Lab assay of single mutants.
Amino acid sequence: NQASVVANQLIPINVALTLVMMRSEVVTPVGIPAEDIPRLVSMQVNRAVPLGTTLMPDMVKGYA
């Protein structure tokens, strides 16, 4: 099963993503693939993302 990107903490809106904010985990439904974590660094989410939430492509500005 493919690992997805999961919030490692509350990720506020309009804050640049850092490695420490994200972890990889096998979850259902599948979200952004874990291998895209380096690409996500410095991008921003378009809504607050609670701890443990799977990041979906539509949550990250400029990802999709």
Rank of each mutant, 00 (worst) to 15 (best):
N1M: 15
N1R: 04
N1W: 07
N1S: 15
N1K: 06
N1F: 12
N1P: 15
N1H: 13
Q2D: 15
Q2R: 05
A3V: 08
A3L: 12
A3W: 07
A3S: 14
A3E: 14
S4E: 01
S4C: 06
V5L: 03
V5Q: 02
V5R: 02
V5D: 01
V5T: 09
V5F: 02
V6C: 05
V6Q: 03
V6W: 01
V6R: 03
V6Y: 01
V6D: 01
V6K: 03
A7D: 01
A7T: 09
A7M: 04
A7C: 04
N8F: 03
N8H: 09
N8Q: 11
N8M: 10
N8P: 02
Q9K: 12
Q9F: 06
Q9W: 06
L10F: 14
L10K: 12
L10P: 12
L10A: 12
L10I: 13
L10T: 11
L10W: 13
L10Y: 12
I11L: 15
I11H: 00
I11P: 00
I11Y: 02
I11K: 00
I11T: 00
I11S: 01
P12L: 05
P12T: 06
P12Y: 04
P12V: 04
P12H: 08
P12I: 03
P12C: 06
I13G: 09
I13R: 08
I13W: 08
I13P: 14
I13M: 13
I13D: 12
N14R: 07
N14W: 09
N14A: 10
N14T: 07
N14F: 07
N14L: 07
V15P: 00
V15Q: 15
V15A: 13
V15T: 15
V15W: 09
V15D: 08
A16H: 12
A16T: 09
A16S: 11
A16E: 14
A16K: 11
A16R: 10
A16I: 11
A16N: 13
L17Q: 00
L17E: 01
L17Y: 00
L17V: 04
L17R: 00
T18L: 06
T18P: 00
T18F: 03
T18C: 04
T18E: 13
T18Y: 03
T18I: 07
T18Q: 13
T18N: 06
L19A: 12
L19F: 12
L19Y: 10
L19N: 08
L19K: 12
L19V: 12
L19T: 09
L19G: 07
V20G: 14
V20P: 15
V20F: 13
V20I: 14
V20C: 11
V20D: 15
V20T: 13
V20H: 15
M21F: 04
M21L: 04
M21R: 00
M21H: 10
M21P: 00
M21A: 05
M22P: 00
M22Y: 02
M22I: 13
M22R: 00
M22F: 09
M22S: 00
R23V: 05
R23P: 03
R23Q: 05
R23F: 03
R23I: 05
R23T: 10
R23K: 13
R23L: 05
R23N: 08
R23W: 03
S24V: 10
E25H: 07
E25G: 10
E25I: 05
E25N: 07
E25Y: 04
E25K: 06
V26Q: 12
V26W: 10
V26C: 08
V26K: 05
V26D: 15
V26R: 04
V27I: 09
V27P: 01
V27T: 13
V27W: 03
V27L: 05
V27E: 02
V27S: 05
T28I: 09
T28D: 15
T28Y: 11
T28W: 06
T28Q: 08
T28K: 05
T28F: 10
P29V: 07
P29K: 05
P29M: 04
P29N: 05
P29S: 04
V30I: 13
V30M: 14
V30R: 04
V30P: 13
G31Y: 02
G31H: 01
G31K: 00
G31E: 00
G31V: 02
I32S: 00
I32M: 03
I32H: 01
I32Q: 00
I32N: 01
I32R: 00
P33I: 11
P33L: 06
P33K: 08
P33V: 11
P33A: 08
P33G: 06
P33N: 09
A34Y: 07
A34E: 10
A34S: 12
A34L: 03
A34W: 05
A34P: 06
A34G: 08
A34F: 05
E35S: 11
E35C: 12
E35L: 09
E35V: 06
E35Y: 10
E35F: 08
E35T: 14
E35P: 07
E35I: 10
D36G: 06
D36Y: 11
D36V: 08
D36A: 08
D36S: 09
D36P: 01
D36K: 10
D36W: 07
I37L: 10
I37Q: 05
I37S: 04
I37V: 06
I37K: 07
I37H: 01
I37W: 03
I37P: 01
I37M: 14
P38G: 11
P38A: 11
P38E: 11
P38Q: 11
P38R: 08
R39F: 13
R39A: 10
R39L: 12
R39G: 11
R39S: 07
R39Q: 09
R39Y: 11
L40E: 00
L40W: 02
L40C: 04
L40H: 00
L40T: 00
V41P: 00
V41K: 05
V41L: 14
V41A: 05
V41G: 00
S42F: 09
S42N: 11
S42V: 03
S42D: 13
S42E: 08
S42R: 09
S42P: 00
M43V: 04
M43Y: 09
M43P: 00
M43E: 04
M43F: 10
M43R: 11
M43D: 04
M43Q: 09
M43T: 05
M43K: 12
M43W: 06
Q44I: 09
Q44D: 04
Q44G: 05
Q44E: 15
Q44S: 12
Q44Y: 14
Q44T: 15
V45E: 02
V45C: 06
V45M: 08
V45I: 11
V45Y: 03
V45K: 00
V45R: 00
N46W: 08
N46S: 11
N46A: 15
N46T: 12
N46L: 13
R47Y: 10
R47A: 09
R47I: 06
R47L: 07
R47D: 07
R47K: 14
R47P: 02
R47E: 10
R47W: 06
R47M: 15
A48P: 13
A48S: 15
A48C: 14
A48F: 15
V49D: 01
V49I: 12
V49A: 04
V49H: 01
V49E: 00
V49F: 03
V49Q: 00
P50L: 09
P50D: 11
P50Y: 07
P50H: 06
P50I: 04
L51G: 09
L51I: 15
L51C: 13
L51Q: 13
L51S: 13
G52R: 04
G52M: 04
G52H: 10
G52K: 04
G52V: 03
G52T: 00
T53Q: 14
T53G: 12
T53A: 12
T53P: 03
T54M: 03
T54H: 02
T54Q: 02
T54W: 03
T54C: 05
T54I: 07
T54Y: 03
T54V: 08
L55P: 01
L55R: 00
L55T: 00
L55N: 01
L55E: 01
L55V: 09
M56H: 08
M56R: 11
P57V: 05
P57G: 07
P57K: 08
D58Q: 14
D58L: 10
D58E: 12
D58F: 11
D58Y: 07
D58R: 06
D58V: 10
M59I: 05
M59C: 05
M59G: 03
M59Q: 05
M59N: 05
M59F: 10
M59H: 11
M59D: 14
M59R: 03
V60R: 00
V60H: 02
V60P: 01
V60T: 02
V60W: 02
V60I: 14
V60D: 03
V60A: 01
V60Q: 01
V60E: 02
K61H: 14
K61L: 10
K61A: 12
K61W: 08
K61Q: 11
K61C: 15
G62H: 09
G62S: 09
G62E: 13
G62V: 04
Y63G: 04
Y63P: 04
Y63A: 04
Y63S: 04
Y63Q: 04
Y63H: 04
Y63I: 04
A64Q: 15
A64Y: 05
A64P: 11
A64M: 10
A64W: 04
A64V: 15
A64F: 05
A64R: 12
A64E: 10
